[in-house]
Design a protein around this nucleic acid. Structure first.
Lengths: 244, 244
DNA sequence: CGACTTGTTGATGTACATCAAGGTACGTGG
DNA sequence: CCACGTACCTTGATGTACATCAACAAGTCG
């Protein structure tokens, strides 16, 4: 398989990313070790794996998760194109969570040892890495708020709405619809509920006519009302990039 | 109030922090704007506050939280001396969570604009910042796993055990005991449960004789057994500092 | 064609929340 | 000193949001 040169990397086309200085691009190019293609359901990082490389998700969906020894699983977050995989592991430690592909995915592989070069020579990029980590952390905060304090209906509405909006930002939606790759079981494991209860809550939520989710196809019918159900409090407009 | 010079900063004494190069110390010194002392219950960062500075917690306990507009509160994490406050906000955005002091606290104030200087001139320190953020994220992951998938008893055991261990690492414990500053209501808001249920679960947990928590005084009686109840799966030994 | 994955629905049980009342400790002002 | 409030904890009674179990339907894949 041919390597996609970074200059034509799909991520570079996103408006989220301002142009890099030429030197930065060259550096990124030099850091890139490899590119990997994985099938849906493949494991990207195993729980307990040591010194896993960093990845950027170029295309497809994935998710981070943890499991207890008796099999209970908690999905921590979904990953979309443009997301970084692996910053979570405090450097050089064993990974304490797994990452699994939800669809076929394409990954850019980035050896962990070289992260230091990036910090040393390209503080702008280092700043970006921190920014991405902070963004991840905010999503986790929201997840914790959902699972801890939102009701079943609010949780489900919140998750579907925000997943839609994340997908929308990177152009994965068509109007008010999208094809979600996850199942009701995935959602159950994300929201800390049982599959059956997700299904019953979904019936009630569909009945509100603010949205519809059936056979993986999701459609928003009334975004404001859905946001109200979700207890979604609109954040300040997103910064496009770290300041300076 | 006198400023504590960074060279004699309480944090510098912790074994968690290896010696800094002299230049690094000077930089930190120059970045330090101020030092603040706050009373228990004071708000350190308000939800919605923009461009809040960064802080290092020098002494005392605090916590990060989010609230829904109808008052439901979720505590996201507790903060102990040596923790960074504010990296979570993706730079320059409005803060989407609040931070409140649990005891009287002493803070080192660090203007957000200067973070860039640090990244530019001291990549080692920048690396540390990322490392701290990654560590925070791992704690959040565990919190999400707890609230989503652990039972009430497991959750409570896990929280108390890990809070004890975090305190132990920075020398806040006396043998197997510690004085926790938080109330059962705080724990309820951390674990996504009601105060009443926390109390009832606590009775059951005390009855196992693996620990005792009464009137803020916490004591571990059998760490291994408590860890089993908590479904605590020991992580790989902690790295002392990011590899370079 | 079975075997499997995903979704759906109903019956039953339980882990939790909510409500309510009271208990102890600690502070305050009279 | 007492009377009073307030913060935190405790316990029982009742209700409900959830999980679990079970059975079945529809699609897909070897």
């Amino acid at each position: 398989m041919k390597l996609v040169p970074c200059a034509s990397c799909p991520l570079r086309k996103l408006s989220l990313f301002l142009p890099l200085a030429p030197g930065e691009l060259a550096l990124i190019e030099s850091l890139k070790r490899d590119q990997a293609m994985l099938r849906a359901d493949a494991s990207i990082i195993h729980e307990g794996q040591t010194n896993a490389p960093l990845y950027t998700l170029l295309s497809g969906w994935a998710f981070r998760f943890k499991t207890l020894s008796d099999g209970r699983r908690q999905i921590l977050n979904f990953l979309l194109p443009g997301d970084f995989i692996g910053v979570q592991q405090k450097m050089s430690d064993a990974s304490v969570h797994g990452v699994q592909a939800l669809t076929d995915v394409m990954l850019c592989v980035f050896p962990r040892e070289k992260l230091w070069d990036l910090y040393k020579d390209y503080p702008t990029l280092a700043f970006d890495v921190t920014w991405l980590a902070a963004r991840e952390e905010q999503m986790l905060d929201e997840g914790l708020l959902s699972v801890g304090r939102r009701t079943a209906m609010e949780r489900l509405a919140y998750l579907l709405l925000t997943m839609f909006q994340r997908a929308e930002e990177i152009g994965l939606t068509k109007g008010d619809t999208i094809q979600f790759p996850f199942t009701q079981q995935h959602v159950a494991d994300t929201l800390g509920m049982s599959l059956v209860h997700i299904n019953k809550t979904l019936q009630r939520l569909n009945a509100t006519k603010t949205m519809r989710w059936k056979e993986r196809r999701f459609e928003i019918l009334n975004r404001e009302e859905l946001a109200k159900i979700a207890f979604y409090e609109p954040a300040a407009p997103r910064a496009r990039r770290p300041f300076i």
